[in-house]
Design a protein around this nucleic acid. Sequence first.
DNA 1: AATGCTCCAGCTGAGC
DNA 2: GCTCAGCTGGAGCATT
Lengths: 197, 197, 197, 197
Amino acid sequence: MLERTEKNSRAAQQELKSLRDRIVRLEEQKKEIAEDIKETYAEAKGRGYDTKALRQVVKREMETAAEAEKRRETEAITELYLANLGMLDGTPLGDAARERVVKAEEQDKGDDDAPPPSGEKRGIFTAEEIDEARSRGASDSREGRRIIDNPFMAGDPRRAAWDEGHCQERGSDGMDIPDSWRRKSKAVAPPEKDVQP
Amino acid sequence: MLERTEKNSRAAQQELKSLRDRIVRLEEQKKEIAEDIKETYAEAKGRGYDTKALRQVVKREMETAAEAEKRRETEAITELYLANLGMLDGTPLGDAARERVVKAEEQDKGDDDAPPPSGEKRGIFTAEEIDEARSRGASDSREGRRIIDNPFMAGDPRRAAWDEGHCQERGSDGMDIPDSWRRKSKAVAPPEKDVQP
Amino acid sequence: MLERTEKNSRAAQQELKSLRDRIVRLEEQKKEIAEDIKETYAEAKGRGYDTKALRQVVKREMETAAEAEKRRETEAITELYLANLGMLDGTPLGDAARERVVKAEEQDKGDDDAPPPSGEKRGIFTAEEIDEARSRGASDSREGRRIIDNPFMAGDPRRAAWDEGHCQERGSDGMDIPDSWRRKSKAVAPPEKDVQP
Amino acid sequence: MLERTEKNSRAAQQELKSLRDRIVRLEEQKKEIAEDIKETYAEAKGRGYDTKALRQVVKREMETAAEAEKRRETEAITELYLANLGMLDGTPLGDAARERVVKAEEQDKGDDDAPPPSGEKRGIFTAEEIDEARSRGASDSREGRRIIDNPFMAGDPRRAAWDEGHCQERGSDGMDIPDSWRRKSKAVAPPEKDVQP
DNA sequence: AATGCTCCAGCTGAGC
DNA sequence: GCTCAGCTGGAGCATT
């Protein structure tokens, strides 16, 4: 019996020890990688990037399609709530929020499955058209147009593409990152909470 | 000495006990309020509100001016990063991001303190003009204009005010909250990650 | 229709606004109380208390009976794991862990429902006996016995009561809290990880 | 100039993109490892281990010497607070807490650097003596002694070693882990909060 | 004093 | 329906 007991005890103990060691090793690897990530952010900060913004970018890049959709939905609803409460303070509704309202209105008016009313062709642009808008943004940038001169209307998917093209074309002096990429670059006086009385 | 010791011991103990009880009482109050908050969110959810969006709204409402400014700055930089990486996926730059770029460009071109180039009067609208835009949004809504017909250009502060006016005017059937305020109202097929090739 | 729409819109908006304000108000109250708690801890720290330990005390005080039981169970199992892995480093098993092992052994030996073997009467002490142990701890303290001279054996519930009596009796000089209540009081050289080769 | 601008822009963009991708890759690795850890815990749970206790064990194993010392100090102070508030509920003071009190008392009595009073030799056991205690725990276990029969007094460092030896010797039936290692094994009736009136 | 990091608790979503 | 694990957000702590 002594033999049996000893052996079984050892078995359970060995198993426990093995589990512990496996986890410890994995945790150490995880910790190392976390270190690397932290270092990378530190390096980015040293070069003038806004780490908070960078974190957001990373988050977005890692989103699945479903998560992105969910996020966009929440953002749109948030904007609608803000608009209804008069809290937009300067930032107009994004396209998703507008679209949401339009869709709700259409359904409201009856389920007669009415096609998009006017002659617009909302959301049905080909990849070529989108790309063309991006190229045009780039060339407009080269020709000195400013980012606020985006020719596409709100709600037009080419609007974002033009922005991308323009941004990707814009330059900077030397190796430096653009001023607009930095924090506090202009740190204007903190605005009063309510501009509109 | 026994007396002294006992007395002092009691003093320290009483103090510790008092501190403990004070904190426990406060923690209990805090817990109660947290309960109330949770209940309120549950109620909101029951009535069809998106609690996640509602939480955002609450957060914004509680922001100080400085915090709001900081948030807007980070948001703008994030958008610029996304634009430069071609990750805007449909959501064009907001006004703050555009403004940021323009400011950086101006400084770039030389500190000749150039005034806002064209005839625009960016950012210098009176409260009256802003209010007028809000009223116009409301009346446009009554006249059947849609939220995507906002007449003000991107970058114009009246754009947001018009949106507010329009939203605040829009109605719903019965006591119900508008469809656009609900989650999953249209839950379209989750889009592929890259629309633009 | 305009009337109806307007009215309903207002209703939904009012509801949203009301929800928001209710939550904001509650959150503000919560924040205030959190402030008070923080201040209390700061005060305690100022008087020499170890806030981390104090937090633990508060946590325990707020535990429900079920939570306390669960915690004790987890603690006991943790100790057993540590013992089996040779990681006890100086802290012997607590009574709960010993009891756990004994119970398991008994069941192991057969479900003959054997009564506690020897003449001990584990766990069946009256409140009076417990109180007596506490009083004895107090008087032993007055008579100069030291806290390490607890006469009750490990596993005896009176052991903890004697400790309580002794501690509650011990004094300090002046208004000051005892040295043993402070952090770093003796900060001995950080021990090497493995005392036992 | 166009060339310059384009090139520099590209440089900054490439840098940003590179930073983003580096972080994304690291985050993915981290996520994978986190998966592995989770799986390991799940496996442990499946075999009857208490994952919460296992987590604690892992935490301890990963502690540095300094962190361990700090933890022990906080634990000791917590116990002293509990004792003084009459909240020990059954768990007597651990050795560290006792030692702490004794040290404070000694200093109190004057810095005459008094040697440990009685004939004890606290804390000055050789590694051999400690190991001997461990072996004795193991053999005592084989001879049928129970874990509550630890012959070393509270405060004696050999006490923990004996416990380790005993635990490491104890067996179990078949491959199974001991009952005492499982949760809810005995789930006694949740005790009333105050046993002592 | 302000910032960044780490830890913890509380909330959310899944799963029996 | 309740529990439970995962996760996000906030709070404390250390640091500069």
